[in-house]
Structure formats: C-alpha cells, structure tokens
C-alpha cells in the first residue's frame, strides 16, 4: 500500500514539474555575438587576402564574434588605411587586427588603440610591440635558400626580388634568404631588389635584373603575385616564391615555378581570430603566432590546390 502511495506522489510530482516547466517557457531570444573585431587588411586584390578573410569569417562564426573587414585600395595607401583604422577605433570594436601597408606609419594607430584600450594584433606584418600572427618570414627565406642550395650547382649566382621595402614580411624573407645562403653555401648573391608588391613591377624588375646580371641562375621572389610577374620574363631559371595561391600553384604544375613556400591565408586568418578570442577571454597570448610554412613542389601541388576554398 505504501508503495502505491509513493507511486501516486511520484506521478503527482512529475505532473507538477511538467506544469511548472511548461509555465516557465523560455522567451524566444537568440544569442547575439557580443564582440566585434575590426580587421584592416592590406588589400583584397590577391587570392591570399581573400583566403585570409575566409578563414577569419569562419573562425569568427565559431567564436561568436562579428567582423568588420575593411581593406585599403591597395597595399601602398597607408594614409587611407590609417584613416580607416582611426574610424574603426571610434566604432566600438573590441579588438583590432591589422596588416599594415607601411610599417613606418603604424605608431599613430597603435597609440590611438592603446588610448582607447583596444588590443591590437598584427597579421602577416610585424609591428613592434604588437602580437603577431602569420608566417615566420625569416624561416621562409631560409627554406627558400635551402631549396636553392640543394638544387643549384656550387658557385651559382642567385638574386632576390622582394616586395615593398616598407613591409617587414618582405624584409625578413630577404634577410633570411641572404643570410642562409652566405653562411651555408658557396652560392653568390647577385642582387637584391625591392619593388611594389605588384605583378607589373615585379615583371619590370625581373627584366632589369636579367639585363644587369645575365648569369643569374636562381631568383627568390618574396610574394606569389610577384613571382607570377617574374616568370613572364624569366625562363629556365630556378624560381622560388612564397604564398599558397592557386594561380601560382598551377604555375608549379606547369613547371614555370620550381617551388613555393606555402603561406596558407586561411590558416593565418583562422589563427588570428583564435588568438584574439583567447586574449579577449583573458588567456595568455604568445607574442609570435606562426603558421606552418612548407615547400610546395610539383609532387605535392595538388594537395595545396585542394586546400583552398575557391
């Protein structure tokens, strides 16, 4: 009999819970991402930056963040970029990710952000005193050098066509390459040239280089878009480039470029957002956050081609 009474009360309690839970129906509210990350990139005119943005958008969705992604017209207009950054800092963002077009004009917005207590992160381009996300550019240069040493006869002459001298990435890549060659091999550095990180400029620089130093056997080009320009004029040379982008990888498959050091934009975009999320969640963040850089050759080109979202 006591069992029946217990059962009865049990059922009663269950009904009560049901009724209570029914009456406490939740209001239809959806969680709205509460953090806004401002992102200012160098440009949107290359595949690399498109994939950086894609990686960022994906990671931001996973971390419940909103993104404002703005780019300057091209990589040269630092004044416009700085204006955009200052407007962005006024627009209630929680963190700023910048890939500055000119490393000599970053202090202004870094100070402004510090004043507004907005954390700043740099992607692909190092800014002094700011957490960095992207490739280890010095190591990229070394990797390129290693490949050249392995594949060129002793005493061969190699040159560098570098991107903007106002950008740390290109400077470090060149430095890494040159230092490695000089320290570890009998190869000679012919000439290191810098140009705007653009297709056309790279082409004219390459023409100039081949005119001035006809014995050149290998060229290290510090960006993929420039590499594509260089191969227009340089035939039968050892060409090493940087970046993971499909047009350049296709050129590897066609034998026009010997190798590319990978720099997966998607990966660095994703990593950047994760680093920002960690910082906003009060977790410690490293000063340098490197993505992996690998050699892309004709053998594994297909693999890297598939990695892209396009």
């Amino acid at each position: 009999m006591t069992k029946f009474i217990a059962l009865f009360y049990g059922i009663l309690a269950m009904l009560l819970i049901a009724v209570i839970s029914y009456s406490m129906q939740k209001s239809e509210e959806k969680f709205i991402p509460s953090r806004t990350i401002g992102v200012v990139l160098k440009a949107m005119d290359s595949e690399h930056w498109l994939s950086v943005r894609s990686g960022m958008i994906q990671a931001a969705q996973q971390n419940n963040m909103r993104l404002i992604v703005i780019t300057a017209e091209n990589e040269t207009v630092f004044a416009e970029q700085n204006k955009i950054i200052s407007d962005l800092l006024d627009n209630g963002i929680d963190a700023l990710i910048v890939s500055p077009t000119n490393i000599n004009h970053t202090q202004e917005f870094v100070d402004a952000a510090r004043e507004k207590n907005i954390p700043v992160f740099s992607i692909d381009e190092e800014i002094a005193g700011i957490a960095y996300v992207g490739s280890n550019n010095y190591a990229i240069g070394e990797k390129a050098a290693e490949f050249m040493i392995k594949n060129l006869p002793e005493g061969a002459e190699v040159s560098v066509i570098s991107g903007s001298a106002n950008q740390n990435a290109h400077i470090h890549r060149t430095l890494g390459f040159v230092n490695y060659i000089e320290k570890n091999s009998s190869l000679r550095i012919g000439k290191t040239m810098a140009a705007e990180t653009q297709y056309r400029q790279a082409m004219t620089q390459a023409e100039k280089l081949l005119r001035e130093r006809p014995n050149t056997q290998g060229i290290f080009v510090t960006s993929a878009i420039m590499t594509l320009g260089v191969i227009e004029v340089a035939d039968n040379l050892m060409i090493v480039g940087v970046d993971t982008q499909n047009d350049a990888i296709m050129a590897i498959k066609n034998g026009k470029i010997n190798t590319l050091i990978s720099q997966d934009g998607h990966e660095s975009g994703k990593l950047a957002i994760e680093v920002v999320a960690a910082h906003l969640n009060k977790q410690p963040v490293e000063k340098y956050n490197f993505i992996s850089n690998e050699l892309i050759t004709a053998e594994n080109a297909e693999e890297f081609l598939l990695q892209e979202d396009f």
């Binding site: 009904l15 129906q25 939740k26």
Partner: peptide, 25 residues
C-alpha cells in the same frame, strides 16, 4: 492515463518550444 498525459504534455511543450526557437532562428 497519467503517463500518457504527462508524456504528451512534455512532448507538446518541447515541440512547441522547439518550434518557437526554430521559427525565431
């Protein structure tokens, strides 16, 4: 009867809630 009513109440409650939240989504 108690069990069925309870189950149905629960079912209705959750399906209605689900419906609402799906709609809101």
């Amino acid at each position: 009867v108690l069990a069925i009513i309870f189950a149905m109440l629960l079912f209705y409650h959750y399906s209605a809630e689900y419906f609402y939240s799906e709609y809101a989504n």
